[in-house]
């Protein structure tokens, strides 16, 4: 990666980290309700892959840990935070919440909260791309535990059979909710599971964004050039619990500390410092600037935005009636 790109990505990763930490605080303050799944520790995964792809052009879909993926695709952090606050200005108009961030204009096709659910949806988007003949690809980000759903195997089979342009990114953070991967899954290294379907696959360090970027370039090129699906496994770690109700009693503080030694932001920061492209003072100033942006713009926007109107409760259940009348009444022109 070029120095300028690395500096930009570092800045983005800091924004992603601080955004998520601010969500944590807002949840404690009861500004955010429901379930909240946070991303700190895994930033290099989404950033490395999307640097190799084309955000806003390629179709991206993921699970419920979805805020950062949406922002990386181009969603406005203000609208994502407003969504978490349940406001009408939220990217899903306050109807979705943390687990259902959507920003279709940037081709972020949503966060889905049934584990493994996005696998076939991603393959279906790839099928649509294949039919239409575009150069987009579909990218599906999911965790390791999703691979234990039957629909994982069903989708891998169809994606390989029909050579669909879909990239599966497995963010292997070693835990499915509160169960360690070696206690739930016969093999830890998930990329081995797709070889039975003849799908190209690789494993990569998910903490170093440059390594992720390099591996993702190979993966994206493969998919974009019509060679069929690709499965990229990124070994990573989430610092916080599965959701806010999780106090992490199932793992040791020593293990967490060990992973924090390989923090994706610090790895990139230290590299830029060593390359004399950044000073620690500059980094700290950037952090402060991002915190100020989050507080003065993102949180302010969410706080000040209006609630959805109760009169609009049933809006969006079905397509606007007026537009569907020929089929609803049988009076087609």
């Amino acid at each position: 990666m070029k120095i300028e790109d690395k500096k930009r990505v570092l800045r983005e990763m800091v924004l992603h980290r601080r955004f998520e930490e601010r969500c944590y605080q807002a949840y404690i303050e009861r500004k955010i309700g429901g379930f909240l799944h946070l991303y700190p520790g895994q930033e290099a995964c989404c950033n490395g892959v999307m640097e190799a792809a084309r955000p806003g052009h390629d179709y991206v879909i993921t699970g419920y840990r979805d805020h950062v993926h949406a922002i990386k695709c181009g969603a406005d952090p203000k609208e994502v935070m407003a969504e978490l606050y349940g406001k009408e200005t939220g990217c899903s108009k306050g109807r979705g919440g943390s687990m259902h961030i959507f920003d279709v204009k940037h081709r972020f096709m949503g966060g889905y909260a049934l584990v493994g659910g996005p696998f076939p949806l991603a393959a279906g988007m790839a099928k649509a791309i294949q039919l239409k003949g575009g150069d987009e690809i579909a990218i599906c980000f999911l965790g390791d535990a999703a691979n234990n759903q039957g629909v994982f195997h069903e989708t891998m089979n169809m994606a390989a059979l029909w050579k669909l342009p879909v990239l599966f990114v497995c963010e292997n953070n070693l835990y499915g909710i509160g169960t360690a991967i070696e206690r739930s899954t016969a093999i830890v290294h998930q990329h081995k599971r797709v070889c039975a379907y003849g799908i190209e696959a690789a494993e990569c360090d998910g903490q170093d964004v440059e390594k992720v970027y390099a591996a993702a370039r190979v993966a994206v090129d493969h998919v974009r050039h019509g060679k069929g699906p690709y499965f990229l496994e990124l070994m990573t770690y989430r610092y916080r619990g599965h959701s806010m109700s999780d106090s992490r009693g199932y793992r040791s503080r020593e293990e967490e500390e060990m992973w924090k030694q390989r923090d994706p932001i610090f790895i990139l920061r230290d590299r830029l410092v060593a390359e004399k492209a950044l000073t620690l003072a500059e980094f700290e100033a950037m952090e402060k600037e991002i915190d100020a942006y989050i507080e003065n713009e993102v949180i302010k926007f969410a706080e000040e935005s209006p609630e959805p109107r109760v009169e609009d409760l049933e809006k969006y259940v079905l397509a606007d009636r007026e537009t569907q009348l020929p089929w609803l009444t049988g009076k087609a022109a």
């Binding site: 879909i61 076939p120 991603a122 393959a123 279906g124 790839a126 099928k127 039957g150 069903e154 989708t155």
Partner: peptide, 17 residues
């Protein structure tokens, strides 16, 4: 693979199919 191909059809419909 009813779950799989139904989901695949739905995903295709997101893009206008």
């Amino acid at each position: 693979s009813e779950g799989g191909f139904t989901g695949l059809g739905i995903g295709a419909s997101f893009l206008g199919v």
